[in-house]
């Protein structure tokens, strides 16, 4: 008899507990109903890529010395460097350079190791194409600069979460002038003690 009553009690407690949890869950979802959407309405709004964003690679033909370091550091030897040896001047003559972005994994090794800095990363990420061969960029296509999100008049540029002022979660409606959370590298520099080598040398001379 008591066993049965205990069972009924446990049953009831379980049911009340379940109802309690359900109410808590419903309160959470209900609370979300009144919050503003946080989604970025691409393509009308776009996030500003961060400084270290690894997008489509930019290439300057005139700086390149055809050393092929980019090919050697590439995980799949992707860049194609088309050069011939000029017997008269005993110098490499670069004719074409291409990277296939349908294959590239945007690891940035080529950019890292390029001795003349003729390779660099851009913010461009819209690389959709109807034909994958059109993603094979030659040196002309590689030399084009992408449209910046901030200068495109058709796009509302939104800051990413880490670039928003402290406490802001939603980039919509945050003014452009509002400073980002934390200190910028320049501001960190200002707080450091001034130990310029020239100044230090001067003070030591005066002492001597």
């Amino acid at each position: 008899m008591f066993g049965f009553l205990k069972k009924v009690g446990d049953y009831t407690r379980d049911a009340v507990g379940a109802a309690n949890y359900m109410t808590q869950g419903l309160a959470v979802t209900f609370d979300h109903l009144r919050r503003r959407p946080v989604t970025v309405q691409y393509p009308y709004e776009k996030l500003i890529p961060s400084e270290r964003y690894r997008g489509r690679i930019h290439y300057e033909f005139d700086k390149c010395i055809a050393c092929e370091v980019c090919v050697r550091v590439c995980p799949i030897n992707l860049p194609v460097v088309d050069w011939v040896m000029n017997k008269a001047t005993k110098k490499k003559e670069l004719r074409n350079y291409s990277i296939d972005f349908g294959v590239c994994i945007f690891c940035g090794n080529c950019v890292e190791y390029c001795p003349t800095n003729c390779l660099s990363m851009t913010e461009e990420y819209e690389l959709a194409a109807f034909d994958r061969h059109s993603l094979n960029y030659d040196n002309i296509a590689l030399g084009r600069l992408p449209t910046s999100v901030t200068s495109d008049p058709a796009v509302f540029a939104l800051r990413e979460l880490a670039y928003l002022p402290k406490g802001e979660m939603d980039p919509h409606g945050v003014p452009d002038t509002a400073p980002r959370v934390g200190r910028l590298p320049e501001q960190v520099l200002e707080t450091l003690p001034k130990t310029e080598p020239a100044a230090a040398a001067a003070t030591s001379k005066e002492k001597a």
Binding site: T29, H32, L33, R35, R36, P37, V38, T39, Q41
Partner: peptide, 10 residues
């Protein structure tokens, strides 16, 4: 619409 609102979408 309600699903979107619950998930903070439009």
């Amino acid at each position: 619409k309600i699903s979107a609102a619950v998930q903070q979408r439009i």
